[in-house]
Design a protein around this nucleic acid. Structure first.
Lengths: 218, 218, 218, 218
DNA sequence: TATGAATGAGCGTTCATTCAT
DNA sequence: TATGAATGAACGCTCATTCAT
């Protein structure tokens, strides 16, 4: 290895090998999250995960020390990607807080239904998960929660929103959004878009944005 | 079995025997529902159920042909009792539809948190259940759903409620109520009452009952 | 169950069922001890034990909660029986301490070679065993050790024996006796008897009982 | 491979390469012997060996065709070194056979405890090893055995020693010496020296060297 | 009716071994 | 030479299910 390569390695120690390994890990994680989402943690065996990846069970242990760890990592990865997308969206938005919240909700549901139909139940029933995972999930949820909470706080502060309690509203919002993929799992195209809009409008009511007879903000 | 015994069986005794059997079944069902609710279907073994009943595993098979059947029956029983309580309540109510819906929601949450803290997850993740059970659960939900739907329809019809869509509002309501036992599992007494009231008020917003500055109906 | 039977049960709570279970447990224990002795704890799988018993692996778990527990129990049972036999022998002996020690050693070797060819290595390499078992084995050894130690102490006190140190002598004695089954595993009948006598005589030298030119005590 | 390379290989380079390979093999052997000694053959994985050598598992297969072979070679190397040290010692000794045997025993124990605390169990339980290995170990033991046997034969011939049987005495001696590292594993410094002396004296009794009241030879 | 016993399939995990690079 | 990856058989263990009594 030349001095230059060494320097490069020190700066970014991910060599070709490491990158390949990382890619493989992401593959496994994606597959695992998919399956856990479909059937729940307990109901998925490592055999199942391995089979969908077309490798043998034992191979998974080359990348993860246990099923629990695989589960934790899967949910963590998925949760982070999800939150990052929402954060990215928010960064591009301005305008009335009402509009921004609508976009955030709609985007969240869209991701849930379109991109991570699996992911929902990962968040939904934390009792299913071993202790250690619960912590990870909790942290994930908090980060995720903050995006919505900040907007609602802002809206309430500016008088745009009316709520019984911010916590209550947030909880109901999340409970509903978490179920959305189940509700809409059969829909595609315009039907799905309409369903998402409808659900979004309904959820906006939780912050007092009653759909008036006049034109609603798009 | 002699003719006499048969006759006896046909007359009273069978009734007695049958009643005893039914009672036993109900005991088992209650215990099973309890355990499934506490830990989830997969995490409960028949050994667990048998132990809490102080019988042996094998005995359960005298009453139920499989774990799945036991699970289905447990959820069915629990769901029916639950719905019956709500139906009973509704029968005693009159007054504005707004008030009646509030009472129904509050009662539902109360049952969920206080009486069947278990029951929630039985409803929540139907994918966990084998095909056959899913049907039972679906029917159960529909009957349950109707109570709420009828009230909302009435309110919308009379102009008391405003909704984006009845279906949407119902779904969000149920999603939230289903989670309530998880949210409030740590609360007792007045704290719990307050939490239930708050959640109820929040859910009423889904039908356009924005909490005004004036006194809200109790 | 009649009152009488109940009373009997209270006094000696081992019913027919319990006795049968105990007998089965003893069978399993004997087989397990045999196998562990033959190949060592690690090298024996539960499948092996089950196969020799002509049952399936899972059945063993009806009687023992883990392989470790099975191992511990096996060694404990075997060790106790062994020690009891030696204690029984000692109780019938009198005469010079020299003669009693000879008999004890010879009997110990005889049991090792003839009755528990397996048992030796159970005592020999305690590192093979999980922590918990080590304690059990240690206690077992101490009880066993005492039989020999008391005799040697007596002999040293009365001037019959000469030792560098009682501990040293005991250790060497046990190390040698533990190996005897390996050494003599191929021998039968008179050849075996002769071998045992020879080894016994050699071990007696550890307490200063040098074989003289004259007749040795039988 | 070109003729030139072949030639080169035949001449010096191969020597260098071969020597390097041999050195590597010795490293591996030493590490393996260490680990096998610490935890026992079964409890050590090739992963463990590789890790301590800071190479990958697969690399070991470049030097050894199987774990069994590695085990056999490890024990062989260790046994040879051990015997050579004893042979070396014997070559420097003269004087009474009694003194020479004492030195040999003490040295053997010293090596066992101080230098190869590992080695003991390698010799102790030959049943653990596959057939092929047993042969190697047997040969090793015989060479090793001879050192002691020759001395005892000499002593018996000259009347210095009295034994029931040379074989018996040898066996007991080895059984005890094999266990010494277990017995003394916690000791250091003077305490250890004293323990070795004591054990040596005790073992000398197996050849009739009863510790007298007078000064014993150091 | 109920029990104690047994079964057999499956699970998470380990590990010696193989192999393309 | 050495590595990273993968394999497959085995292991300890769990559990729904069966069955003789």
């Amino acid at each position: 290895m030349s001095a230059r390569e060494t320097a490069a390695a020190d700066a970014a120690p991910v060599g070709r090998v490491q990158r390949k390994r990382d890619r493989r890990i992401q593959e496994i994680l994606a597959t695992a999250a998919e399956l856990f989402g479909e059937r729940g943690y307990d109901a998925v065996s490592l055999e199942d995960v391995a089979e969908r990846l077309d490798v043998t069970k034992g191979s998974l242990y080359y990348y993860f020390p246990s099923k629990d760890q695989l589960g934790t990592s899967a949910i963590e990865t998925l949760g982070n990607r999800w939150t990052e997308r929402l954060e990215g969206l928010l960064a591009t938005l301005d305008g009335p807080v009402h509009d921004r919240l609508r976009r955030l909700i709609a985007e969240h549901i869209g991701i849930a239904v379109r991109d991570y139909p699996a992911g929902l139940r990962l968040f939904l029933v934390p009792q299913d998960w071993p202790e250690q995972q619960r912590e990870v999930i909790k942290a994930l949820r908090q980060r995720h929660d903050r995006l919505f909470r900040d907007l609602i706080d802002e809206g309430v502060g500016s008088g745009s929103f009316t709520v019984t309690s911010v916590d209550s509203a947030l909880r109901c919002m999340h409970a509903s959004m978490s179920q959305s993929a189940v509700w809409f799992s059969g829909l595609r195209g315009e039907r799905l878009d309409a369903a998402i809009t409808e659900l979004t409008d309904t959820l906006m009511m939780l912050v007092g944005a009653v759909p008036g007879p006049g034109p609603r903000p798009a």
